[in-house]
Design a protein around this nucleic acid. Structure first.
Lengths: 162, 162
DNA sequence: ATAGATGCAAATATTTTGCCGCCAG
DNA sequence: CTGGCGGCAAAATATTTGCATCTAT
């Protein structure tokens, strides 16, 4: 089962895709003294270069193209580690694609995932309004926000019912 | 595994809890000519009276207290049906409680779930800002929004690190 | 009467764990 | 050298499906 969900930024620039210089994730981990194994280097490269939201399966597939000696369990353990470090966002895109999860390197800004429930296309949206909303919630609830996940579903122009 | 997540509205009134007059869900289904079986009546009652976000397991448990002849599969099929009708929201509360899903009857307004990552308490927040955000996204992307899911995690006053 | 719902068992799908040998630092 | 990491197999969790039977309308 390949991954799905095309990725397209609405209000920010495209992600650069040079080839093998250390990406964001790898740099972040080096800075924190996390042990970099062969497997982790590969997985970080896969995720740093992903232009899509990847499922755990899709990550494994891509990793094994680089080096087949990567095990699915290691993928899960690495994802877990990245989440612990707050470097990874986990989505499920409203379960349009079953109960699989999708992962993406958590960039500098939060963004909202907007998915078409019919064709499955996913757009990413950043919004100052959303930043305001977070600040308002921090004020109102006294909670200090560390992660957010906003998934919005609907029908895109081509997919309107009727 | 019981359900968790206390429910507390911030900006709206508390949910009433009379005993057996038809609740929101049941009324909605009657209006749509959906067949009401013994099992469905029970499940709708459970959900209409829930003061918490319930997992599929928790829904089954409560239903079986009313009548043990309700099967887990029927719970899943009923949840599925309610989702199709847009009467049910499905959450996973940022996976604080494992990969279980939680369900709640979708009230008249969207709301945001704000969870403390340490103590697990969940608050529900409604916000005009969020309504504005949805309208902005509809304008910007041309998507007609039908469902939203916003889950925010952080640390509440009592649970701040340090 | 009959389309649609349920129960049961088995299949799927996805993620986690125990244990032991291995390798990055 | 050594503690954290990875591989393998097996378990756990959560949900879905096929099919025969039943029931609300």
């Amino acid at each position: 089962m390949p991954s799905t969900a095309n990725r397209r930024r609405v209000s920010s620039g495209e992600r650069l895709n040079a080839h093998s210089e250390p990406g964001r994730l790898r740099l972040a981990l080096e800075g924190r003294g996390v042990r970099l194994t062969r497997q982790r280097r590969i997985l970080l490269e896969v995720m740093d270069q992903a232009e899509q939201h990847l499922s755990a399966d899709a990550i494994l597939e891509r990793a094994q193209k680089i080096d087949p000696r990567v095990h699915q369990v290691t993928v899960y353990r690495t994802l877990e580690m990245l989440k612990r470090h707050g470097l990874l966002d986990e989505l499920d895109l409203l379960h349009i694609h079953g109960h699989r999860h999708f992962y993406e390197s958590h960039g500098p800004r939060d963004h909202i995932h907007v998915a078409c429930l019919r064709c499955g296309k996913v757009r990413e949206v950043e919004s100052e309004l959303f930043e305001q909303l977070k600040r308002q919630i921090e004020r109102d609830t006294g909670i200090q926000i560390t992660v957010t996940r906003t998934e919005i579903g609907g029908y895109c122009e081509g997919c309107r019912p009727r």
